[in-house]
């Protein structure tokens, strides 16, 4: 049992990280053309207009929640005068709402993908692998959040978060994760599966988030010479 836990919480994260970083670099090097959202809006717009923003904005909030929950130690919020009760109520309400939005959005998108014939026909093999994992991650996470509602429930900030931070110190605290409830462990495992699939699926479009657009002049000029050189570099 102990070996299994060491493998899952001490070794696997690093393998996934290597796959995630190496895979993304490989994809960017050899398949820049494939870095796209592969949008299906041309086929169907009405459902996407509901599901797309709901899912993505929900996901952004969920991401923000994870950053706060995993990276900020409990000691820091205590010192800032944020009470334990207030923190968890916040995590439960805001986190729960964000998670629900993301799941609802994904449900609309999945329904659309299955029921709209053109969208279904355009579904790739990697999509078929990614969507179930994505849905499972979200549901496990939502369950974990909901389980926090019970009084005296598991405080992930003293367990999962400690383990997560310890990964980056190259000293994985396997024991911290070992004591976590099954749903948290499941959530973490599924998330690792998702990150492993990431570079090989359409999820790479997240790397293309066009934040530079905010600072760019409207009209882009490029020289013929520079694009020819870029072409050469890419091949």
């Amino acid at each position: 049992m102990n070996h299994l836990h060491i493998a899952l919480w001490g070794v696997l994260p690093y393998l996934v990280l290597a796959l995630f970083v190496g895979g993304s670099a490989w994809r960017y090097r050899y398949d820049r053309f494939g870095f796209t959202t592969r949008s299906s809006q041309l086929y169907e717009s009405r459902l996407l207009r509901v599901g797309g923003p709901l899912f993505h904005y929900g996901l952004f909030l969920v991401l923000g929640g994870h950053v706060v929950g995993l990276l900020i130690p409990e000691g820091l919020t205590d010192r800032l005068g944020v009470s334990e009760g207030f923190y968890h109520l916040n995590a439960l309400l805001v986190g729960g709402a964000a998670g629900l939005a993301a799941v609802a959005g994904l449900a609309v998108l999945l329904w659309r993908r299955l029921r709209v014939r053109a969208v279904r026909a355009a579904t790739s093999r990697s999509d078929r692998a990614v969507y179930p994992v994505l849905l499972a991650v979200l549901l496990a996470g939502l369950t974990a959040t909901a389980s926090g509602a019970a009084a005296g429930s598991y405080d992930y900030r003293l367990g999962v978060s400690v383990w997560f931070r310890s990964l980056f110190l190259l000293d994985p605290d396997v024991a911290a994760m070992r004591g976590a409830p099954l749903v948290y462990q499941l959530h973490a495992l599924l998330a690792m599966a998702l990150f492993g699939l990431w570079p090989f699926s359409r999820l790479v479009h997240a790397f293309a988030a066009p934040l530079g657009y905010l600072a760019r002049p409207y009209i882009v000029y490029r020289s013929r010479a520079s694009s020819a050189a870029a072409q050469r570099g890419a091949r």
């Binding site: 820049r32 053309f33 870095f35 796209t36 959202t37 592969r38 949008s39 809006q41 479009h205 293309a208 066009p210 009209i219 882009v220 000029y221 490029r222 020289s223 013929r224 694009s227 870029a230 890419a234």
Partner: peptide
């Protein structure tokens, strides 16, 4: 982008991310 030399407007297929 608009090409400086001849003003032709082109899509860099390797940079397009399909935002539509």
């Amino acid at each position: 982008y608009k090409r400086i030399e001849d003003g032709i407007v082109l899509v860099d297929q390797d940079r397009c991310r399909g935002w539509r």
